[in-house]
Every structure is written in structure tokens, then in C-alpha cells.
């Protein structure tokens, strides 16, 4: 059951495009990757939640760029519209509603100590991940044909190969909905 033929297609060496284009795509990849990581670092390190949220938007947009490099058209658009657009504006509105003042924020004097300690602890895993990534085959980033990543193609994948997980997402979304009503809703009486 190989549901994702693009992997095979991506593995093919680029023959049509010139070396310059490939260089350019590589540069784009590294730029987006670095921006994504910087945004995520900012999310963790910024003191004020609003700065953190803005920094997170940077990450989401950079990820959209990475999806575009993989010819995933639909996911690219959804990432920009739904995640970087709709969801992040909701989060920012909520943070603004909370009206957080600098004095409301906790004092984190030991923050750097925890960060450095944590970094040392996860270092072996990080080194192992570098080793893993280096075993990956060379992949050229070129536009995959056959309207790959379009609405129709993604829809066919979802309904032909991924029916069960796709349908069960419905319950996955329902549970937090009920949970949010229960935990944050008005404190009702017992019936």
C-alpha cells in the first residue's frame, strides 16, 4: 500500500532544469527552514505572549513556503489561509482580550538555566537526528506534474486511501469542542 507516489517522483534526479534553478530551490529551502526555526525559537523565548504569537506566524508562513517547494499546492494555500490567517488571528484576539500587562507575567529568573540544561539533555538526540538526516538521499526540488497536490488529487487520496483517519478527525474535533464547553463554559447547576 503505497499511497504517496510523489516520494518516488521526487527521488528522480532533475534533468530538465538547469543547475542554477536547483541551486535557487536549495537556497529557498534553507532560507525558509532557518526562518521557521527562528520563529519557533522566538515563540519560546519572547516574554510577552503577543510577541510569541507574532513570532509563531513567521514560522507558519515559512512552513507554507516549504510546502510550496514540495509542490503541495493545496496545503500551501490552506497553511496560509487557515493557520497563518484564521487561527492565528483568533489567538491574537484572545491574547489581546486578556490584556496582559508586563506585571502580570511571571518572573522567570531560572529560564536560561532550564534552557541550557534542557539543551544539554536533548543534545544526544539532536546529534542522532543529524546523523539520520545525513542518510537521507539527495532530493531535487522541482515542480511535480499531473496537478500533484491540487484539490482534486488530495481529495482522491483522502477518500481512497485515508478514509478512516479522515472521517475520525470529526470525532477528534468534537471532543475538544465538548471539552472547551465543559471546562470554560458557564458554571451550571446539576440537573
Amino acid at each position: 500500500m503505497n499511497c504517496w507516489p510523489q516520494k518516488v517522483r521526487l527521488l528522480k534526479k532533475s534533468t530538465k532544469k538547469g543547475a542554477l534553478d536547483i541551486m535557487f530551490a536549495d537556497w529557498l529551502f534553507f532560507t525558509f527552514a532557518v526562518i521557521a526555526v527562528l520563529g519557533a525559537t522566538g515563540l519560546v523565548l519572547f516574554r510577552h505572549p503577543l510577541n510569541g504569537a507574532m513570532s509563531f506566524i513567521v514560522t507558519l508562513i515559512a512552513l507554507a513556503g516549504l510546502y510550496a517547494l514540495l509542490s503541495a499546492k493545496l496545503i500551501f494555500a490552506l497553511q496560509l489561509i487557515v493557520y497563518a490567517g484564521a487561527i492565528m488571528s483568533l489567538i491574537i484576539i484572545i491574547i489581546m482580550f486578556l490584556n496582559i500587562q508586563p506585571e502580570d507575567l511571571p518572573h522567570e529568573e531560572t529560564k536560561w538555566m532550564y534552557l541550557i540544561g534542557g539543551a544539554i539533555i536533548v543534545m544526544p538526540i539532536g546529534l542522532f537526528m543529524v546523523k539520520m538526516v545525513r542518510t537521507l538521499p539527495n532530493i531535487s526540488t522541482e515542480i511535480v506534474g499531473n496537478n500533484f497536490g491540487g484539490v482534486k488529487e488530495v481529495g482522491i487520496q483522502l477518500y481512497q486511501n485515508w478514509l478512516i483517519p479522515f472521517e475520525f478527525i470529526a470525532i477528534l474535533l468534537l471532543v475538544p469542542l465538548v471539552g472547551a464547553v465543559v471546562l470554560a463554559g458557564k458554571r451550571g447547576k446539576n440537573k
Partner: peptide, 9 residues
């Protein structure tokens, strides 16, 4: 995640 989210609540 379905299981965990329900149990969190």
C-alpha cells in the same frame, strides 16, 4: 488524541 483529549477534560 481522541482518547487523550477526552481524558484531559
Amino acid at each position: 488524541e481522541i482518547m487523550s483529549l477526552a481524558v484531559y477534560v
